[in-house]
Amino acid sequence: MEAYNYTDIQCPPPESSEIELCRILYSEDYLTNMGYMRGIMSKNEYSERALALTEKIINVCAAHYTVWEYRYNIIKDGSNHNKIIKDELIWSENIILENPKNYQVWHYRQLLIIELVSKSSDDYNVEKEFELIDKSLIEDSKNYHSWTYRTWLTKHFKLYNDKNLSFINSLLKSDIRNNSAWNFRFFLLVNNPENYIEQDRKSIINGLVLQKELKFTENAIELAPQNQSSWNYLIGIYEKFNLDINNLKGLSLKYSNFEDDKISELEMQPIISSVHALELLARIYSSSKTTVDKAIRAYDLLATKYDPIRVNYWKYLSSSLNTT
């Protein structure tokens, strides 16, 4: 980085206090640079040296909101606007990959993209952003910021497309328990705020895509019957489309072996393969007077045997059946 001179910038040191709370042992460098930053910001100087200074500060404390705002204003002020923003995209990509959990840099990226697309006459392909998001998910496939940004990008530019879906499929293939991917799948295919490819939306309602999703989820359950994500997704679809939950009785029986409760407790082989199945079965049983007893028995088994950490919760559900 080019060395700039800031010695002409005047900034009085921050007010000190005889007694402070949480006095931080700052480095000399930090205090000097923050002094320059305050001085240069108070003058609204939009210059290359100001830009370089914002980078120094961001590198040591990325949570400084107004430094990001200042940097953004310098970028917007510059001539050869599109080139500067494109350079800035490359710069911020590195910051993102180094600090994927920083709120400010993702927000900054969003501002840059909006600015570039609104002013740009050339055809910047916003789908390039997916490459950055995908990279940021390699280290941590559940990074909240990456997913929030993906949702924003998809909504803002209406990118409800197969590319998005095939990425989700590949993530779920490598980790069927990635709930962030399940959640995005729900957003993309089921919630579908902008009517993802009108034709497909209709076919969801017609049952084609819906059937495909139900099949997909059942396969996922087969792979990992105790996986909370796939059961939540399945029930989510049923509720979204007002489907009759009783239709899931067969599936929940398959993974709960409830009616065939014979295997001895001493055996290491679990007699149920999913607490979520047993829970769902209990919910189905509780909807009819003739089977309420079975529901109570299922909750009792969950409380005492299969899922005892939630003993109070299962008893709470069970007692609500007793009283009604």
Binding site: L21, C22, R23, I24, L25, Y26, S27, C61
Partner: peptide
């Protein structure tokens, strides 16, 4: 509350939350 090591420097802009 009395004193924070240099590692907290990156929290400077949100120091009120640390307090």
């Amino acid at each position: 509350l009395n004193f924070l090591p240099n590692a907290f420097q990156s929290n400077d802009p949100i120091k009120m939350s640390v307090i």
